[in-house]
Amino acid sequence: MRFHTRKWVKPEDLNPNGTLFGGQLLAWIDEEAALYTIIQLENNRVVTKYMSEINFMAKAVEGDIVEIGMEVQKFGRSSITLNCEVRNMRTRETIITVENIIMVNLDENGLPKAHGKTKTEFIKDRLAE
């Protein structure tokens, strides 16, 4: 799994227990999934269709730096299925996993659109073309 984004846990990200608020972490994951999909499918029009159950495994506290990793599970006709792991950058302890995030590619009318992609591509490979 490649970890693409880092987030610094700040006071405004905390719940009343003094740990990272799960809703904030899910917002970060959703944003990262959208960005990852936009880059893979080369289309700014993507939406989250589904996010499977989440598994909180550890906490994060103020000052922690968390890394968000995404990995393609499969390419559908108009969708891409990802999985995600968020971990503490320093300790490498897994904070949360999400097994399936389904993102859908849309056309200019907001309808699902075939994307024609079948494998993960990296920017460095596109630049070499």
Rank of each mutant, 00 (worst) to 15 (best):
M1L: 09
M1N: 11
M1Q: 10
M1E: 08
R2E: 01
R2Q: 05
T5K: 09
T5L: 10
W8E: 13
V9I: 06
V9N: 08
K10L: 13
K10T: 15
E12Q: 14
D13R: 04
D13L: 07
L14D: 13
P16D: 08
P16T: 11
N17C: 13
G18C: 12
G18M: 12
T19G: 13
L20F: 12
F21Q: 06
F21P: 06
F21R: 13
G23T: 11
Q24C: 15
Q24R: 15
L25M: 15
L25A: 10
A27G: 13
D30C: 10
A33L: 11
Y36V: 04
Y36F: 11
T37H: 07
I38Y: 01
L41Y: 04
N44R: 14
R45V: 04
R45K: 15
V46A: 00
K49I: 11
M51N: 02
E53H: 00
I54Q: 07
A58K: 13
A60R: 03
I65H: 12
V66C: 02
I68E: 04
V72H: 00
V72I: 12
Q73F: 12
F75G: 01
G76F: 03
G76M: 07
R77K: 14
R77D: 14
S78G: 05
S78C: 10
T81K: 02
L82T: 04
L82V: 00
L82W: 11
N83A: 12
V86W: 06
V86C: 02
R87Q: 07
N88P: 13
R90K: 09
R90V: 09
T91E: 14
R92I: 02
E93T: 13
E93N: 04
T94R: 13
T97S: 08
V98M: 04
E99C: 08
N100K: 04
N100T: 05
I101P: 08
I101A: 04
I102M: 10
M103C: 10
M103S: 08
M103D: 09
N105D: 10
N105V: 01
N105S: 10
L106G: 04
L106D: 08
L106M: 06
D107L: 12
D107C: 10
N109D: 08
K113H: 05
G116N: 01
K119I: 03
T120N: 05
I123G: 03
K124P: 03
R126V: 03
L127G: 03
A128H: 09
A128M: 07
E129L: 02
